[in-house]
């Protein structure tokens, strides 16, 4: 019984994914390309960086990286908090 329920759930989920994949746009042709064009055109003259990904991560979206660094700091703090020696 539960095997048939699992199979039905798998088929439904796979069907949704397959239909979604069939409805995708062709690779490399987004619906709106303005942002991509901006980054590829202006990351060299504006940021003077050859690596556009680094230009986005550290310049255009520096706030995001600041949040990532904060997440890492919080994770380290949590590990240090859990794994310390408890002195009763």
């Amino acid at each position: 019984m539960s095997r048939w329920v699992s199979l039905a759930a798998f088929l439904v989920a796979a069907g949704f994914l397959i239909f979604g994949a069939l409805a995708l746009r062709p690779f490399g042709q987004p619906k709106r390309a303005e942002m991509d064009q901006y980054f590829t055109l202006y990351s060299q003259p504006e940021v003077a960086a050859n690596n556009a990904v680094t230009a986005i991560v550290f310049d255009y979206r520096g706030y995001d990286t600041l949040g990532e660094a904060t997440v890492l700091f919080t994770a380290v703090t949590g590990v240090a908090l859990i794994l310390r020696r408890w002195k009763p």
Binding site: A48, A49, T54, A55, F58, D59
Partner: peptide, 13 residues
């Protein structure tokens, strides 16, 4: 020797 603050930020991170 390019990219302004990006290499410094890379070192910091």
């Amino acid at each position: 020797n390019t990219a302004g603050t990006l290499p410094l930020m890379n070192w910091a991170v």
